[in-house]
Nucleic acid binder design. Sequence first.
DNA 1: CCCGGCATGTAATTTGTTACATGATTGA
DNA 2: TCAATCATGTAACAAATTACATGCCGGG
Lengths: 197, 197
Amino acid sequence: MQPCAYIGHGHKDSMALRETILTVLTRGKMTGYEITKHFDEVLSYFWQASHQQVYRELGRLAEDGCVTHKEVVQSGKPNKKVYTITKRGREELQSWVREPTPLAPQRYDLLVKLLAGTCVENEVLLDEIRRHKMVTDEIRDNCRVMQDACFSTPLESLSKHDQILYLALRRGVLIIEAQQEWLQEVIDYLEDGRFKK
Amino acid sequence: MQPCAYIGHGHKDSMALRETILTVLTRGKMTGYEITKHFDEVLSYFWQASHQQVYRELGRLAEDGCVTHKEVVQSGKPNKKVYTITKRGREELQSWVREPTPLAPQRYDLLVKLLAGTCVENEVLLDEIRRHKMVTDEIRDNCRVMQDACFSTPLESLSKHDQILYLALRRGVLIIEAQQEWLQEVIDYLEDGRFKK
DNA sequence: CCCGGCATGTAATTTGTTACATGATTGA
DNA sequence: TCAATCATGTAACAAATTACATGCCGGG
């Protein structure tokens, strides 16, 4: 089998966590906590980051003058730092958007399991694949429900931001459907050693 | 938009590089260099690793007694270490295959770029998306050619190992086609602000 | 009264990337 | 002769994960 070019290992640039945070901040001032919430909610479909990552990156962004923060004293609660993106931050974000992004490398351990699969009974592998299929079923349903529920109004009337979120959801559905088709083919193959396609 | 459950951040276990190397070694004794070659060739479709990672992990595997190595003196070339998987290594691999794998987290910076997109002209974004589409076109063609060329014989007559590689290729094709459909929808959207679906 | 959510972080560890280093062989 | 490939690594750094830590508030 030939090597898969295009997906290289050595990628510099990227560092998209930094730029993702800047992107979130273009929507308005926010605390580290709120940014993290964003990662747990809307952004979770195409980016994940823990609060530790967010705080560290905010520290670096502040050092580099891409964000500023104001400490807000709160009664009862610990103080919070509200971050604002600076002109410099916007410039950095802009030039990141302008320069080409490399394709993301793929790592898929289910395939490694299949390759290693001869060391366990077929049923064990099948169970694992079926489990993945069930989880993917749920995700797909979840995506579809969200498409129907949140975006029942004509798409053109949504804000630009929501239109992008719709596209994110749409991508989720398409990729997951492909993934599911593949999982089903693997199940068929493992069940009777035949290929459907 | 609701959070995407299922794709969590905190994943322990995984550590599939270790297990991928063990899997490769079940096919026969190999040097670190040969394992790296494997990562550059067949495995590149679903796993990538640099030679530095491979050497480091081999060191750890040897420490833990999962592999042994024999130094082979070569004339003209530097000596090489031929690694063999041990009983212990096979056991560890087996229990890894047995325990469930979490779904891989997704990070997709093109979507971040779309979200941040309001800060640049539409044409800049379009160029980037079109570029991605062209690269994906190439990958898809490449996958298809390989399917036709390498697997023209009846699939059932292939070795189990090659059947798995076929499945890997098949997954590549399915996922990439979905990705392409999505990229086309994004292009349509950016070109005239309309949604086709 | 305990638990979960708010809100902030530090520290340790692992994993991945980049750069540096050596030295021989083979083909253009 | 020059570059590429074989073959092996070390070192430094960046990024991601896990665990630890604090302290207040509100609800069951």
